[in-house]
Design a protein around this nucleic acid. Structure first.
Length: 274
DNA sequence: ATCTGCCAGGCACTTACTTCA
DNA sequence: GCTGAAGTAAGTGCCTGGCAG
């Protein structure tokens, strides 16, 4: 539970802000039904009218607007980049709403500066989603962490988020997507392996069929020794040596009639009979 | 002890955006 | 500059397990 770990990190849950994702999301879902179609309303204005502003626009829109509107400088559009060198690029900026992932105390002010746009912050406006690209450093750190453990507990998530100047929700999403990619790759690898296995078995099946054909053909034209008393002679289909099914004595002669009959079981081992 | 509702976390699927050839 | 493919961050819905009442 987030609350346990939040306590462990000294963060105060007493504000009832809850954890980063679902707690809010479930509340959000209720809101969405009444608000989710707001974003379908066309809006290209930068003004705050209707509660929509430039921060909530897709990058393409913002870029288009920025060309003719310098009132919103980069400080508005990419505040994180101006404050933190290691922060990933972001197609548009964060509002300075308090990040609900970040809990209490001094961190709030900092969080106001580098928090990113999130659905928690924006979905009530129904604005189109924002897209960030993690920096190489962030990705590398996340990869390192993923190598250590493919899932994070809330404390680890908080620490990693703080370390990377990301919101815990972003770290969580990254790990979810990373697990999905890993699984996908594993599935593809398994699929390749099965294909190879199938090919091998198909090839082996062909060989066995061919061998069977040959055996059948040889049975139709028995060699001279097949004319010996059949009740006591069998032929090992694997090594094609003649065995004396009833005899107990040692092999005799060039046809090496065995002491015991050979029974060929192609399902156990094709060449194990001899 | 069992039931029920709430919450949090994970996953599958999908969308939206970026990057690159 | 345009375009399509690939990669990936993020949204959404569902399921499950834990917990409290």
């Amino acid at each position: 539970m987030d609350s346990d770990d939040d306590c462990a990190t000294g963060l105060d849950l007493g504000l009832g802000l809850g954890s980063d994702h679902h707690h809010h999301e479930q509340h959000k879902k209720k809101l969405i039904m009444s608000l989710k179609y707001d974003h379908l309303m066309p809006s290209l204005t930068l003004g705050p009218s209707g509660g929509r502003d430039a921060y909530q626009m897709p990058a393409a829109k913002i870029e288009a607007i920025r060309v003719g509107d310098d009132q919103l400088g980069d400080d508005h559009l990419q505040p994180q980049a101006s404050c933190f060198s290691g922060v990933s690029s972001y197609s548009n900026s964060s509002s300075v709403k308090r990040d609900k992932d970040h809990l209490g105390g001094e961190d709030v002010e900092v969080e106001k500066v580098y928090s990113r746009v999130s659905t928690e912050d924006l979905d009530e406006e129904g604005s189109p989603r924002k897209k960030l690209r993690l920096t190489k450093e962030q990705s590398a750190t996340l990869e390192d962490s993923f190598r250590e453990h493919t899932t994070l507990n809330p404390k680890q998530k908080q620490e990693l988020a703080r370390k990377l100047n990301l919101r815990p929700r972003q770290v969580e999403v990254w790990f979810q997507n990373r697990r999905a990619r890993t699984k996908l790759k594993q599935t593809e690898a398994d699929c390749e392996l099965l294909k190879k296995c199938c090919d091998t078995l198909t090839e082996e099946n062909k060989k066995l069929k061919k061998e069977l054909q040959e055996l059948k053909a040889s049975k139709l034209t028995p060699p001279f020794y097949m004319q010996l008393p059949t009740a006591t002679i069998t032929v090992c289909p694997s090594c094609e040596r003649v065995c004396n099914g009833a005899g107990d004595g040692p092999p005799a002669g060039p046809f090496s009639i065995g002491a015991k009959p050979h029974f060929f079981n192609p399902f156990t081992h094709p060449s194990a009979a001899c």
